[in-house]
Design a protein around this nucleic acid. Sequence first.
DNA 1: GGCGGCATGTAAGTTGTTACATGATTAA
DNA 2: TTAATCATGTAACAACTTACATGCCGCC
Lengths: 188, 188
Amino acid sequence: MVILSTSKNKTKYLILGLLSEQPLSGYEIKKIVDIRFSFFWNESFGQIYPELKKLEAEGLARMLETLNEDGKQKSSKKFSITQAGQKELEKWLKEPVEKEMVRYELLLKLYFSNSISGSTMLEHIREFQIIHRKQQMIFDKFEEELNRDIDMHENHRAILMVLNFGQKVWKAYDEWCNEVISIIDQNK
Amino acid sequence: MVILSTSKNKTKYLILGLLSEQPLSGYEIKKIVDIRFSFFWNESFGQIYPELKKLEAEGLARMLETLNEDGKQKSSKKFSITQAGQKELEKWLKEPVEKEMVRYELLLKLYFSNSISGSTMLEHIREFQIIHRKQQMIFDKFEEELNRDIDMHENHRAILMVLNFGQKVWKAYDEWCNEVISIIDQNK
DNA sequence: GGCGGCATGTAAGTTGTTACATGATTAA
DNA sequence: TTAATCATGTAACAACTTACATGCCGCC
C-alpha cells in the first residue's frame, strides 16, 4: 500500500487562505465563496463547518471569544488562523498547482446533439450565454469597486488578476456562443 | 422529505451518448473520454464499469456476444445502446443544462498569493501556461484530422463546435498568462 | 405574528478516486 | 522472457450535496 500525500482536501486551504486575511465565521466564509469565488470555486456548509472543527483540533485555526462585553453569547463563532495554520497555508501555496477540474455539461450535450433538434440545442446555448453575461456584469461591478478604493484589500493586485481571468474567459464563452448560434441558425 | 429527480449522475449519459454512436467496452469509453473529452470532462474506471452494469440491469444497454467465431471468449465486453437507452439519452439532452462545475486551484493560490513570493507564483503560472499550450496543439491536430476526413463521424459538425470552445477558451488562458506574467515580472 | 436573513450544525446519501487484484495479449 | 498495454473489476476511502433541525434577531 503506497501512501501518497498530495494535498487533496482543498477546503482546508480555502479556509486557511480566507482566515489569513481576517477572522471569519463559517457562515461568512460561505458568503465570500458564493459572492467572490463562485466563478472559479464552490463550497457547501457541509464541508465548511466540519473542516473548521478539524482545523481547530489540529491547531491550525483558533475560535475567538464567543462572549460579548455584556457576558452574553455571540451569535456567530469567528475563527482566526494560528501561526501553524499560516505555515501550512504557505506550504500549500508553494506546492505545484494541480490540474483544474472542469465539467461542461453543455459540451457533452452538444457533442451528442445529433440525437436532438437544432432548436433545442440552440436554447441550451442561449441559456448558457445569458447566465454568463450576468456574471460578466458582476465582474465589471467588482472591478470598478476595486479600482475605486484601491487599498481596501492588501491583496488588491492579486484579486484584479483573478478577476481578469474571469473577464477573459467569459468573453471567450460569449464569442463562442455567438458563433455557434449563428452556425446552428444557418443550418436549421 | 422532498424527492428531487434532477438528473445528477452524468456518467450514465456520457456512456449512453458514446454508445449511441457505436458499441463500446468500458475500456474504450475510458480511452475516448481521456483523449477526446479530457479538456471538458473526466471519468474513472471506478465509475464506468459499475455504471455499465447498472445500465444493462435497467435495460438501457445490452452486452454484445462475448464469444469469437472459434468459440473462445473475447477479451473485451462490448455494450450497445437499446431503444430504451436511446430514449433516455434524448430525454436528458432536452433537459436544461446544469451549471458547469469548475475549480481552478491556480486562481485560489493567486488570490492568496500575498503570503508567498512573486517568483513562486510566477512558476505556477508558467507551468499552467505550458500545460495548456500542449492541449492547444492537440486541439489543432484534432481539428485538422476532422477537416481531412470530413465524414468520419456523422456528428462532425458538433465535434468541431466543441473543439472550437476549447480553442477559444485556451487562447484566453494563454493571453491571461502572458499578461499576468508581465505584471508580476514588473513588480519583482 | 410571521417572514426573511443570520447562523450553526449533522445525518444520510451520492459521487468520485485510488489502490489493488487479476489475467490476456502483444511487441521488443 | 519480460515489459507494456489491454482489459475488467472491486473495496475502501474521500469528497461533496442535500435535506433537515434548530434557534436568534429585526422589522413590517
